[in-house]
Structure formats: C-alpha cells, structure tokens
C-alpha cells in the first residue's frame, strides 16, 4: 500500500476543516451577541469549551485504542493511540491558554487554584509525562505496550477533570448544568447556544482531521525506518 497517497475522504475532510474553522471564527466574532457583563472576551468561551471537549475526547480515544492495541497487538492501534494523545495535548493547551486569557479581565488574575483549573493542569501534566515515558523506551513494541497501559491509567484524570465542578466548590462557570454544580451557571441565548454547538462540531471535525494526519505520519515514520521506530 502506498502511504503517500492521500485518501479522498481525508481530502474532503481537509477542505471542510479549512473552510469551517474560519467560518466558525466569523460566526462567533460577528454573529453572536456581546455578553452583557463580560464584553467581547466572553466570545473566547465557544472555542475554549470546544477545545476542552476535543482534548478530552482525544484522551479517551487514546485509552480505547491503547486497549485495542493490548488486545490485538497490531501496531496501527498504537499509532492511533499516540496520535490522539498528541493532538489531545494540543487541544488541552489551547483550552488552558484561552481560559487564562478570559480569566485575566474577569477574575482579575491569570490563574487561580480552582478545582477545575487544577484538575485540567494535572491532566495535561499526566499526558506530558506520557511522551516522556515513550521517549525513554527503546523499541516500537515496548513503546506501544507500555504507552497503552499508561494511556489507560491516565484516562482516569479525564472524568476527574470533567466532574471536578460537580465534586468540589468552584468558581469556574458551569456550562452543562444538569445535575447542578456549585459554580455560577450562565444562561445562554439561543444564538449563543447555536454558536456553541457549531464550534463543538467544527472542533470535532478538526480533531479527526489532525489525528488522521498524525496517524499517517506515524505510519510513514514506521515504514521509513521500522527497526529504529
């Protein structure tokens, strides 16, 4: 099989992502109402939530495909697992950075040791350590096997982060307010909700696109030098 040849579905996905991401930016910046108290910076929230969602989804995919590797011992599951975790780390970083920029004018500080922020930071550190672990291992097989075990244990931090606003007192706003958290929920107008769902959809598409490309890179690296990789 020629790995250099791009599947038609990936081409379509590339085009969709390249069109829809700028479209989502335009939608959020120009077609959502300005929040009554916070002002324009509140618009960062749509991509902040989407990035956090995409990051967590990536980490879950990383654990599931890690499990698939352990069951089947086929390397392509490992390529998928490590690709999702790398992309997940990028999204988690975006969520943290955009959150800090929002917090600066709203909370008057870049960072507070709030449960949601703390657990997100822990989750990101845990997945940074995943790459430190892999870089210390010598063969493709041990990297895949031990990486998969680590990815499955590490995914425990995802529900911890997601439910942290339910478990502990927090000042972080609650978006999915079912079940009730302590944090200040804020009511979204229908147009805000539409923009949020559009952003979530676009980020999910972008996630698939990025993971797919990263997967192809892993495959290419393997075929270039299977003995070192």
């Amino acid at each position: 099989m020629n790995v250099l040849k791009k599947p038609i579905l990936l081409v379509i996905l590339d085009i969709l992502t390249l069109v829809l991401v700028p479209a989502a930016v335009v939608l959020v910046v120009f077609f959502t109402p300005v929040e009554a108290v916070m002002g324009p910076v509140q618009k960062v929230f749509y991509f902040h939530v989407s990035a956090a969602w995409a990051g967590m989804l990536c980490f879950i995919i990383g654990a599931v495909t890690g499990g698939a590797y352990l069951l089947t011992r086929r390397l392509h599951w490992d390529w998928l697992s490590t690709s999702s975790i790398e992309v997940g780390l990028v999204f988690a970083l975006i969520a943290i950075l955009s959150g800090m920029i929002w917090a600066r004018p709203i909370w008057n500080t870049w960072w507070v040791w709030d449960p949601r922020l703390t657990t997100t930071a822990i989750m990101t550190l845990v997945y940074l350590a995943y790459f430190i672990l892999r870089s210390g291992l010598n063969t493709q097989e041990t990297r895949a096997r031990l990486g998969a075990v680590y990815a499955i244990v590490a995914v425990l931090t995802v529900p911890l982060t997601f439910f942290s606003i339910r478990l502990f007192r927090t000042i972080h706003p609650v978006v999915i307010a079912t079940g009730g958290g302590d944090g200040p929920a804020f009511n979204m107008s229908p147009r805000m909700l539409t923009a949020l769902f559009a952003s979530l959809f676009v980020f999910t598409l972008m996630l698939i696109d990025l993971v797919w490309h990263r997967y192809r890179l892993a495959q290419l690296q393997y075929e270039t030098s299977p003995e070192v990789n």
Binding site: T119, V126, L128, I132, V153
Partner: peptide
C-alpha cells in the same frame, strides 16, 4: 517521579 507525581496528585 515524573510519572508518579502528576497521576498521584489528586
């Protein structure tokens, strides 16, 4: 320690 501390933090 690099593997243990972040996972043990909670």
């Amino acid at each position: 320690p690099v593997l243990l501390f972040p996972l043990a933090l909670p």
